[in-house]
Write a protein that binds this DNA or RNA. Sequence first.
DNA 1: TTTGTCAAGCTGAAAA
DNA 2: TTTTCAGCTTGACAAA
Length: 204
Amino acid sequence: MEDAEECITGLCLGLGMGGYVPKKGKQKENRPVLDLAFELCPKGEAINLNHDKVESTDSDNSNTNNNNKGCRKKLRLSKDQSSMLENSFKLHTTLNPVQKQALADQLNLKTRQVEVWFQNRRARTKLKQTEVDREWLKKQCQNLSDENKRLKKELQELRALKVGPSSPLCIQLSKTATLTMCSSCDKLVKLNEGNNNIGLEGTN
DNA sequence: TTTGTCAAGCTGAAAA
DNA sequence: TTTTCAGCTTGACAAA
């Protein structure tokens, strides 16, 4: 089995039958290649050596074209395999070696395949989350922008009013305190009895 | 034909 | 040094 796999891999890589072309023209040795999950297919049919037969597709012309050179069929995980992986992912998004091996045995896959599935699954999750975050930030930005516009408008309206003790802007807070706007610094000011002014907050 | 999805390839960084 | 992960890329395949 492993000899056959090496042979197939060699064919696929050597003949350029798809797959990543290493920049340095060399494959890392401790990285097992999994393109070998399929035998060289006779005609439009690939056999998943790890699991079950993969359906052939009539539209798969490239397959027949590549018959003589060997072919690389895409592995499709079965529904059962996918759902079990999903369930496992819900429990823990990363696996320790023992869990990985157990899951691989259970699914009749290689540990590397399980590992790759989890890596890709995490990437997809992150991508989705990034998209969600982006939408949320966009919304927040819009809200802040609207609020900023509203406040600017309000400020303009306030400035348009003549500020002073007798102006409409001068709000009676209590018998002893009055809220007014300082004409020099544009700040809301609380006027207490005896002229103890307390600045409240800047308005610009 | 184009586009989207997904398994699997590689690289580089971090941790043990 | 080895292992594991994230990130990016490739190629097969299906659907539009």
